[in-house]
Amino acid sequence: MSKIDPVCGMEVDESTQHKTLYKGKVYYFCTANCKTEFDRDPEGYLKSGPRGMH
């Protein structure tokens, strides 16, 4: 099943290794870069949605 990367907005497969758990919910990322971005400001990304290229 595919999910949306909360940082760049890409579709990501659930089997990816790049994921994290935040407030009990799993988020999936396309690369380690996007995960690092998310970890820096999770609330920001969840509030304003994917920012595409950053």
């Binding site: 990367d5 396309c30 690369t31 870069n33 996007c34 595409g52 290229m53």
Partner: peptide, 10 residues
Amino acid sequence: MHCATCVNTV
């Protein structure tokens, strides 16, 4: 490269 973020990083 997988995504737009990669393009940007590269």
